[in-house]
Design a protein around this nucleic acid. Structure first.
Lengths: 256, 256
DNA sequence: TCGGGGCGTTGATGCAGATCAAGCGCCTTC
DNA sequence: GAAGGCGCTTGATCTGCATCAACGCCCCGA
């Protein structure tokens, strides 16, 4: 690999590709229906019939958020559930004194509001420009209550999130700084891979501070670890991301 | 409070009390049905009709585990789901080198196996003597698939667990040792309170090492923090537990 | 009755990562 | 094109918690 090709910016995971289930829609109230984008992204919807997907499509609208825009704050009334179609979200909790823990980053295809509950349990910001398929929560809940197989999928998604959360507890409670960073990059690679992205270069639209607040570190420590791994030729720092140069070494450090 | 009364041992949360839904049962195959103990404990079952509870009762058997006995290991085939009726469980994950993260302690009323998936995502040991209501997982899944409102309850339980897990991430990632211990004790108090226990004295059947592996600390640090809080008259160390002497101070330290 | 192991506490010391601080490159704005 | 802000890196120093070590208590089994 030449230096020039190595240094090209990380390709963002821009958008869920249009899929077979997409169907343009017109709605009587004049708002633009989501045109299937969100429902297509909906990993949760695999088992739905076409007419059910249509119903979901008609229920939803496309919503856009600029970088750094806040979608909602912890404790807000949960008026909407979202399905991300492009961009990256950070979900976080704050302590009274301002310390922040980012409980997760959301990528296209991810669902926000799995709990279906009255209030959001965390805050959410757009990191870069974000598009999402937005549903009115009470409509969505009513729909889910009529479709047990969709509920079953949501339940699977929720328990998957729980497993991810427990894995992150291991990382936060029992791993060194170098292991945290390596393990995080491997996790991101895996997620991007599932989204069909190349997964050699990891786009990182979030700041070092965001990474630190996700991994239970400081931004300086994250920066130092990344520099160290770059010095050891495990990573290459490229604009807006990191290229994994020595995957097996990274797996050795970050193995779970 | 006199020293003698302060020093009495922490009362364990021994068992879920018999409730209105309990119904003795006989089963054709001769095994002893769970007699409602688990189903009564089942916070998840609030919306079930009596005949549905009866069906659950008949599906279940009572299981007992001695202190330190392992119920299952991470990755085992998930043959059973459990509902704890007495005792305390630790759920944990191990890193290849033996480091351990306890992802949660389970008390009476708690459910193990919410994910309904093929394999357990963590290991589980009895800390003290544990009784549980045990269901064959595939029977249970089949039952749930016929009862959407039970599935809805399981989903709510799962998303509640997810919220708890996210709160624990904040603790692990962003809180000091003293805050971790204080916050943990307040959480336990709250859980015990919901179980109807006194919640002034927190029974702690788990070891300092268990606490450390839950809080991302070492056993020495846990011990030192407890000693410090006892020295400051915030806590009183009693056999098998801790008595909260100065709740407001504890809340001040451990507030979320 | 003694010995040993599990559990807890406490002290001495070490170190990973936090904190404090400076400087660089790249925007944006005026 | 100067100024300022933001993100990032790197160096110097500090510190909270880990590590290493010793010991006491209790229980249990020989």
């Amino acid at each position: 690999m030449s230096q020039t090709s190595d240094a090209q910016p990380a390709a963002a995971v821009t958008e869920i590709q249009a899929g077979a289930f997409d169907r343009p829609r017109c709605r009587r109230d004049g708002t633009s229906a989501c045109e299937g984008c969100g429902v297509r992204a909906f990993s949760v919807c695999g088992s739905l019939a076409t007419d059910e997907l249509d119903a979901l499509n008609t229920m939803s609208e496309k919503a856009h958020f600029a970088a750094k825009e806040t979608l909602f704050l912890q404790g807000d009334r949960a008026d909407f559930v979202f399905n991300i179609t492009s961009g990256t979200l950070r979900l976080y909790k704050l302590l009274p004194d301002g310390r922040r823990q980012i409980v997760g980053f959301l990528l296209p295809g991810d669902f926000v509001g799995l709990s279906l509950s009255e209030r959001y349990g965390f805050s959410a910001d757009a990191i870069d420009a974000v598009s999402a398929c937005r549903f009115d929560r009470s409509d969505f809940v009513a729909f889910v209550d009529r479709k047990p197989h969709l509920l079953r999928r949501l339940h699977e998604a929720a328990t998957h999130e729980l497993t991810v959360a427990q894995d992150h507890m291991v990382l936060l409670g029992r791993r060194s700084a170098e292991e945290k960073v390596s393990s995080f990059l491997l996790t991101m690679r895996e997620r991007l891979h599932r989204l069909g992205a190349s997964a050699v270069t990891i786009p990182l639209p979030m700041t070092r501070q965001d990474l630190a607040d996700h991994l239970g570190l400081t931004l300086e420590t994250v920066s130092r670890i990344v520099s160290k791994l770059a010095r050891e030729k495990v990573l290459l720092v490229v604009p807006d991301g990191l290229r994994i140069m020595n995957p097996s070494r990274l797996e050795q450090i970050g193995a779970s």
